[in-house]
Design a protein around this nucleic acid. Structure first.
Length: 823
DNA sequence: AGAGATTGTCATCGA
DNA sequence: TATCGATGACAATCT
């Protein structure tokens, strides 16, 4: 590399350039010594050694490739174009990769932040096209170059893109506070050379021969200034980068010494943009309005850097740090973007930038706007316009992945599949990021995008967090629309798994016990009751199904509907051990397990909120033999009723509930009450009366049954009452919050009104003083505004009244004031 | 051990 | 008048 550089700077290239300036196209034969990739990378497709398209075109038409006499009739555009190509080749090896930082420093020196297009700023003093290019050139954005083409050259839309690139470069340097005369000449050359160029900074109308001669002179002088600079640049490259020095002393840098190196990366990127132009040309021809996208890009970039400046405190120090990061020693060639990407990642050296990673990422993405729209979040939030041709790919990727995320929320939990289809948000975000960061379209998102802790990752993590939110939203939507299907239930992990497994076990047990006869468990009972419970608004899941003839089913139902009221206790079990046969009917311990599991599961399910006011229905669980009232007297004997009514006492060992129930249960048992408490409590009044009438009950039994019924109902009522009370409290809390917000808003409005009032008073005072300064009394003396006051009559006339003596003495009329004014 | 939360129960009121 | 629901108050129990 050094040899090549020396080769360029010390010998043949100078001669070749001079010969070229004289009109002779020289092929120095460097290509055979360079690999194709090197040639393309170092020299670029438009270097002096690689003929431009214009030359190629002309050579094909005229002389063909190789040495040829320069046609003096060529327009100055070709001349300027080729001369600039020479400069490209000269500085090809002198690239300090620090353009963004330089830009930042320049922007930091600007007292005003980078304004929006309509915002006044330093840039506003420049022609619109220049301004926009200056804004966007730091981003090194091809669309922004086109923006220049659009804005600054509306009248020369047929101009070649290379000319725009030159404008780009020129505008960049014009935007710098250090005006560089050499590049200003470039500007002149480029604009003078452009056919039909107008509206530029230097809108010269020189004849072509004069233009050529002046261009030659300018270029010669430029060469004289440039070559010593090249060696200096070597020194700077070896010492840590030139751009760093520029940044550290932006105001003291000699003018001519800083421009070329700073423009080199742009020139190099210019070449890349030319390639990109060729690549993107079909898209442009496809009817896509690139200008819209460019404007969007421009505005986004502007907003991004505004945000960076205003909100994130990017100061010169940070810019210097950034610059240092960019200016890696020994980076003699323009950094490959893909290679620069790892360098870009730590580009946020401060916590501010890290914290505001969106802006950071935007800022970094602004370096490669083609690959990286400035604000990823905007892309997520915004509906991609069909006009955004260039952005469509990236946005489509992101939107598609976002849609995939929403559509397949469960996929978000598999970030290890990044190499595959990007269907989760991490992949999507990383892919988006990688898509933006990689100039070659390679997705560099896989590892860095997820594991990097830099601020650049924050958008990713934010999106991941959003992904979780979206995931939940999706689940909720699906649940609302379709209910929780098995897949969703499976996604609910252990809860759903255990719940289903319990139901399955219940079903299997029902099938394995055919002797239960009509007491067989219906598989759907469990889930049905669960759904009943879930649907129950206030916990009044009076799901006492009269059709539930099975104790087991009823038990399952009771367990599903109530977890805290698994009735009976060990005492009851000992007391009523004569009903052991009933124990065989159902798997008591299993049911208990289900109850506990379900108790935990229900509390862990997503719909189980922190304050669950879904009060349990103890009646439905206390006594499983939920005999249908209407059928009881006809289908079952009283003994069976008694047996069934005694069943739950043997199954539940839920001590607390059992103790609660044991009181009434024991009393009911002691008094030989023939039916369960559940039946007593939940039956309607008429059926309950029929039930009582169907049995021969003594007074004590009737009293106990009524007490049980009353207490049971009151218990439910108390639960509902508490639920309502809690709801009222929550509602009041929300209302208080809303009122607080309203109060704050009103206070702000009041303050604003007060400010306006003060302003009005101040203005009125000033106006008053002004009026009195011009009013004179009858003797020509000025009136004291303290002692007098203005009086506005209904007829529109204005007089002056004395406020000291309490009487209004019209001293002067408006016509008098007019006369005074005339004096 | 004690505080707070939860839950059941009673008394009462009104529909 | 009986019934039922709502609710405050109290106590037992749980966490």
């Amino acid at each position: 590399m050094q040899d090549l550089k020396k080769y360029f700077t010390e010998g043949l290239i100078q001669m070749a350039i001079i010969l070229s300036l004289c009109g002779v196209m020289v092929d120095v034969g460097l290509e055979p010594y360079l690999p194709a990739s090197w040639h393309e990378r170092i020299l670029g497709p438009t270097s002096a050694l690689t003929q431009t398209q214009f030359h190629n075109l002309r050579n094909r038409l005229e002389d063909g490739p190789g040495l040829h006499a320069k046609n003096v009739d060529l327009d100055s555009f070709f001349t300027a174009r080729r001369l600039l190509g020479l400069v490209h080749s000269l500085d090809r090896l002198q690239v300090p990769p620090a353009e963004l930082e330089t830009w930042l420093v320049q922007r930091e020196q600007d007292p005003l932040p980078v304004g929006l297009p309509g915002q006044a700023s330093r840039l506003a003093r420049e022609p619109p096209g220049i301004e926009r290019v200056q804004l966007t050139s730091s981003l090194e954005s091809r669309p922004l170059v086109l923006t220049l083409h659009e804005d600054a050259d509306d009248e020369e839309e047929d101009k070649e893109e290379e000319t725009d690139v030159h404008y780009h470069t020129v505008a960049l340097n014009e935007g710098e506070e250090e005006e560089d005369t050499v590049l200003q000449h470039y500007c002149n050359i480029g604009r003078e050379g452009g056919p039909g160029s107008s509206g530029g900074v230097n809108n010269g109308e020189l004849p072509q021969n004069e233009q050529v001669s002046s261009s030659l002179q300018e270029c010669l002088r430029l060469l004289e200034e440039t070559f010593p600079l090249t060696e200096e640049q070597q020194f700077h490259d070896a010492g840590g980068g030139r751009g760093e020095l520029e940044l550290q002393s932006p105001g003291s840098e000699p003018l001519g010494s800083s421009i070329l190196p700073s423009t080199n990366p742009f020139l190099d990127l210019e070449l890349q943009w030319q390639d990109l132009l060729a690549i993107m040309e079909p898209q442009n021809n496809a009817g896509c309005d690139t200008s819209a996208f460019e404007d969007a890009q421009n505005s986004r970039a502007t907003e991004t850097f505004e945000t960076l400046h205003q909100n994130h405190g990017v100061d010169g120090t940070e810019a210097d740090l950034v610059m240092e990061t960019w200016s890696q020693p020994g980076s003699l060639r323009p950094p490959n973007q893909s290679e620069m990407e790892p360098v870009l990642l730590p580009l946020t050296p401060t916590e501010e930038l890290d914290d505001h990673s969106s802006a950071s990422s935007s800022g970094v993405s602004g370096v490669y706007p083609l690959q990286s729209p400035p604000d990823h979040m905007d892309l997520l939030a915004q509906d991609p316009s069909p006009d955004l041709c260039l952005g469509r790919s990236a946005e489509d990727v992101m939107n598609r992945q976002t849609q995939d995320l929403v559509a397949t929320p469960e996929s978000s939990s598999s970030p290890e599949n990044c190499s595959g289809d990007c269907t989760n948000i991490q992949e999507g975000n990383a892919a988006t990021r990688g898509l933006y960061m990689s100039p070659s379209g390679d997705f560099l998102f896989d590892e860095d995008g997820i594991e990097d802790d830099d601020g650049l990752l924050s958008p990713l993590t934010d999106l991941i967090g959003d992904a979780a939110i979206l995931d939940e939203i999706s689940l909720l939507d699906m649940a609302l629309e379709e209910g929780f299907n098995p897949e969703m239930t499976a996604r609910l992990d252990e809860e759903g798994y255990l719940l289903r497994e319990a139901a399955q076990q219940e079903t299997a047990r029902a099938h394995l016990q055919p002797h239960l006869g009509e007491d067989q468990v219906h598989p759907g009972d469990y889930q049905q009751d669960s759904e009943t419970e879930a649907d129950s608004d206030s916990g009044l899941s009076l799901a006492f199904s009269l059709s539930q003839a099975s104790p087991c089913a009823s038990e399952a139902s009771s367990y599903s509907s109530s977890s805290s009221t698994s009735s009976s206790d060990s005492a009851d079990e000992s007391l009523f051990s004569e009903d052991e046969d009933a124990v065989e009917l159902c798997d008591g311990p299993h049911m208990e397990m289900e109850s506990d599991q379900e108790k935990k599961l229900l509390s862990g399910l997503p719909w189980h909120l922190g304050h669950d006011h879904t009060y349990h229905q103890p009646m439905s669980s206390s006594s499983s033999p939920s005999l249908p009232v209407g059928k009881m007297s006809t289908k079952q004997s009283r003994s069976s009723v008694r047996r069934n009514s005694a069943l739950p006492y043997h199954y539940s060992s839920h001590t607390s509930d059992a103790k609660m129930w044991s009181h009434d249960e024991r009393r009911a048992r002691a008094l030989k009450v023939p039916f369960s408490n559940e039946l007593i409590i939940n039956l309607p009044v008429e059926e309950f009366n029929d039930l009582l009438a169907s049995f021969q009950l003594n007074e004590e039994q009737l009293t106990l049954i009524k007490d049980i019924r009353r207490r049971g109902k009151n218990k439910v009522a108390a639960q509902n009452c508490r639920k309502r009370k809690m709801d009222v409290l929550l509602g009041l809390n929300d209302e208080v919050s809303g009122l607080m917000r309203s109060r704050s808003r009103l206070l702000r409005e009041k303050q604003e009104a007060m400010r306006n009032l003060q302003e009005m008073k101040h203005r009125l005072k000033m106006l008053y003083q002004e009026v009195f300064s011009r009013v004179r009394d009858g003797e020509g003396r000025p009136l004291n505004p303290v002692e007098h006051e203005l009086r506005f009559e209904l007829d529109g006339s204005v007089g002056v009244a004395s406020s000291r003596r309490g009487r209004r003495t019209p001293l002067t009329k408006s016509n008098r004031k007019q006369r005074d004014k005339k004096k």
